[in-house]
Amino acid sequence: METTLASVRRAVFRFAETGAALSARYHRARLVGAEHLPSKGALLLVGNHGVWGYETPAFFHLLHNATGRYPLGLAERGFFKIPLVRTVLPWLGGVEGTPENALRSLSDGQLVVCYPGGARETFKRSQGRYRLRWERALGFVRLAMKAGVPVVPFAGFGVDDTFFWPPAEDRLCWQLAQEEKYRMPLVMGLGPLPLPVQLTFAVGEPQEPPPSGASESRLNAFRDHVAACVRRLLLRACHA
């Protein structure tokens, strides 16, 4: 049984790798600023999420090509309440985004990707395009502070243009869970495919986190600083 499960897991991973490579090719995906990504050592990448989180496989593919490392993604905890998703996500590098899991991953020297906007950015409406939803997000700041690792901001441009929202978008939603943030919009592409827009990911310079025991106001200031970095990187990616 264990051998069979391991074989299935490897097959799913290979299939996902192929899909990620095809997605990167389809969208002519580019990575700008790869020099800020070390080939080893713990690192916390923090940036914006695209609609449906569709861009993530292409982004992870580029990260792997640039560093030789398989990134780990801190996934929204609510997704792990969905039976099939909670089984497959870990096979593909998705980690339930608890403080314990995140800290353990960084302690193991992993390249960890965090989207502070979570489901609010993934399931955005049209008016939320390229808008960061980090209003109360301090988890990544506390994580970086506790782990003593730098935060590397990144931005994805094109990630909110791979689909378009049809008229009456507010009514065309699937409710995945009780909370409003899990109200998944029905977006459309080019027939069965997403729109063939180019995806550009820009990576910025590492930012040292606040020291241990920093005040709440200092944590808020650091979060706002990283968010400002991401917004500047969006402009860079847009014109790259």
Rank of each mutant, 00 (worst) to 15 (best):
I82Q: 05
L89C: 03
D108Y: 15
G68V: 03
R69F: 07
V51K: 01
P99D: 06
A58T: 00
L111R: 04
T87F: 12
R69E: 13
A147V: 03
V88C: 00
K40H: 15
Y130M: 08
L63H: 09
V46M: 14
T122Q: 10
S126C: 12
K81R: 14
E96A: 09
H64C: 14
G97D: 00
L89D: 03
V95A: 06
H36W: 05
V88I: 15
T67P: 02
Q127M: 15
T87K: 11
L45N: 01
V112F: 09
L63R: 13
G148Y: 13
H49P: 12
G148M: 06
Q127W: 03
G50N: 00
N65H: 13
Y115D: 12
S39T: 08
P83H: 08
F80M: 15
L106N: 02
P90M: 15
E35Q: 07
P99A: 15
V149T: 05
W91S: 01
V149Q: 07
L37Q: 03
T98W: 12
L62W: 06
W52M: 12
R69P: 11
N65A: 08
L44K: 03
P71Q: 02
G109D: 15
P38D: 04
Y130K: 03
D108A: 09
P150S: 15
A66P: 08
G50S: 01
R69I: 14
L106V: 06
D108M: 10
A144V: 07
V151M: 08
W52K: 13
N48Y: 10
A66K: 03
Q127T: 12
D108G: 14
R104F: 13
V152F: 04
G73R: 08
V95E: 02
V95H: 00
L92R: 00
P90A: 11
V46D: 03
W52Q: 04
L106P: 03
C114D: 13
R125F: 14
F79G: 03
P90V: 04
S39Q: 06
F60G: 14
V85I: 14
K124M: 12
R142G: 04
T56N: 13
P150M: 09
H61R: 12
G50D: 00
H49E: 06
I82F: 09
R86A: 09
V51R: 03
D108K: 09
P83D: 02
E100H: 10
P153A: 10
L143H: 08
L63A: 10
G50R: 01
L143D: 10
L44I: 05
E135W: 14
F154K: 00
G117Y: 08
G73T: 10
A66V: 05
P150A: 11
G78E: 11
E55L: 01
E96T: 07
G47A: 14
L92G: 00
L37H: 05
G109W: 04
R131K: 11
E100R: 05
F59Y: 12
Y70V: 07
L92A: 04
F123I: 00
G50K: 01
V152Y: 01
Q127C: 10
R69T: 12
E121W: 01
V112R: 14
R142C: 10
T56R: 04
G128V: 00
L92V: 00
L45W: 05
H49G: 08
G73D: 13
P150W: 11
H61P: 07
R136A: 14
R142A: 12
P99C: 08
